[in-house]
Design a protein around this nucleic acid. Structure first.
Length: 308
DNA sequence: CGAAGCCCCTGTTCGC
DNA sequence: TGCGAACAGGGGCTTC
C-alpha cells in the first residue's frame, strides 16, 4: 500500500519525467476511479486532452499535476493505486483503469521512451479527477513540489481541509502541538486525523507510537508538550528513513514511479510483527483490534493507560 | 465545531 | 476440495 514516502517518490518521478509533457487522448477503462469527477467520464477526458503538465505537487497522500489550462489532474492512490509511466510497447497491467497518452518533448534518456501515464488500481479506493485550483488559505506553498507557480500558491478544493504533512517545511508544529493537546480522544485517533496532520496511516502511526513509547489509546488530554513533540519527531524520523530507502534502493526515479518500494519487509519494529520480539526490549509484540483496524504494540515499551 | 462509526472495493488467506 | 468469512485501510460521509 502506498504510504506518504512512496507517494513522494512517485511525485518526484512525475515531476522529473512528465513536466512539460502534452496530454493526448485519455482512455477510462473502468468508471470507478473517476467517480469523484462529477461531470462524468467524457468531461474528464475532454478537460485533459491538449493540456500541458506544469508540475507535480503533493500534500499528504494527495498528488496533483497542475495543467496549463489552469486546472489540475488530482490523484489519490488509495489502498492499491499506482501511477506508472510506460512506453507503448509495455503490456497493459491487469488492473489498468485509466490511460493518459503523453507526448514528452524531451524524453531525457528514460528507457523506454515514455508515452503513457497509467493509473493502475486493483481495489479502486483511489481515483483521479480534473479539478480547479484555488488560492491557499494561508498564502503559503500548497505542499511539496510546486516549483511552478503562476502568481499565488494554488490548491485543489478537495485538498482544502487536508492539513500539512510531516515532511512539509511550512507545517506549523507549535500550532499542531496545541491543537492536538486540545483534542479529547486517543493519541492514535488524533495522529490519523487528516485535518490535524496528513499523510500518517496505520503503519506509520504504529511505528511512530512505538518509537515514542506511547500506547495508541493514550488520551491526548494530559499529554505534555514535550511528549507530543517527541511523537512528531518520531513520525518525521520513520518517514524520513522510509523516504531515504525508497530513494536509494533503485538507480533512477523512473523506476520508482513504476511502483517499487524498498521499505516494507524491513525496518518495521511492530507493524505486522505480532508474536515476534520487540527489537528494543524483547517482549512479545501484540496485535489489537482498534478503530476497525489492527494496532501493534510492545506491551512493555507501550503500556496501556489505566483508563484506555 | 469535534468525535466516532459506517462504508466503499477486491484479491488473498484462513477456517470449517 | 469448496465456500464463505475475515482481512487489508484512507478518507468521504453521516450522525450526534
Amino acid at each position: 500500500m502506498p504510504e506518504l514516502p512512496e507517494v513522494e517518490v512517485v511525485r518526484r518521478g512525475l515531476a522529473r519525467w512528465v513536466t512539460g509533457a502534452r496530454i493526448g487522448p485519455v482512455e477510462v477503462a473502468h468508471p470507478r476511479p473517476v467517480r469523484r469527477h462529477l461531470p462524468g467520464i467524457a468531461d474528464f477526458c475532454a478537460r485533459l486532452a491538449g493540456t500541458v503538465i506544469q508540475d507535480a505537487v503533493r500534500r499528504g497522500k494527495f498528488l496533483w499535476l497542475p495543467l496549463d489550462s489552469g486546472e489540475a489532474l488530482l490523484a489519490h492512490l488509495g489502498m492499491s493505486g499506482q501511477l506508472l509511466l510506460a512506453g507503448d510497447g509495455v503490456a497493459d497491467e491487469r488492473h489498468l483503469r485509466v490511460r493518459v497518452r503523453l507526448s514528452v518533448p524531451d524524453p531525457g534518456g528514460g528507457p523506454p521512451a515514455i508515452s503513457q501515464l497509467r493509473f493502475v488500481d486493483q481495489r479502486m479506493f483511489g481515483g483521479l479527477a480534473v479539478v480547479p485550483l484555488v488560492a491557499t488559505p494561508d498564502g503559503l506553498p500548497a505542499g511539496i513540489g510546486g516549483v511552478w507557480e503562476p502568481s499565488a500558491p494554488l490548491l485543489p478544493p478537495p485538498v482544502l481541509h487536508i492539513a500539512r504533512d510531516p515532511l512539509d517545511p511550512h507545517l506549523d508544529e507549535s500550532a499542531l502541538v496545541e491543537r492536538l493537546r486540545r483534542r479529547r480522544t486517543g493519541i492514535k485517533r488524533a495522529l490519523l486525523d487528516q485535518t490535524l496532520l496528513s499523510g500518517v496511516g496505520n503503519i506509520y502511526a504504529d511505528e511512530a507510537l512505538w518509537r515514542a513509547r506511547l500506547h495508541y489509546a493514550r488520551p491526548t488530554e494530559g499529554l505534555s508538550r514535550p511528549a507530543v513533540r517527541r511523537l512528531l519527531a518520531a513520525v518525521r524520523e520513520v518517514m524520513g528513513e522510509a523516504l531515504a530507502e525508497g530513494g536509494t534502493s533503485f538507480d533512477s526515479l523512473y523506476v520508482n514511479v513504476n511502483g517499487e518500494s524498498g521499505y516494507f519487509d524491513r525496518s518495521l519494529a511492530v507493524y505486522g510483527q505480532q508474536g515476534r520480539p520487540c527489537p528494543r526490549c524483547g517482549a512479545t509484540v501484540r496485535r489489537d483490534a482498534f478503530m476497525n483496524r489492527s494496532s501493534f504494540t510492545c506491551p512493555r515499551c507501550q503500556p496501556r493507560p489505566r483508563n484506555g
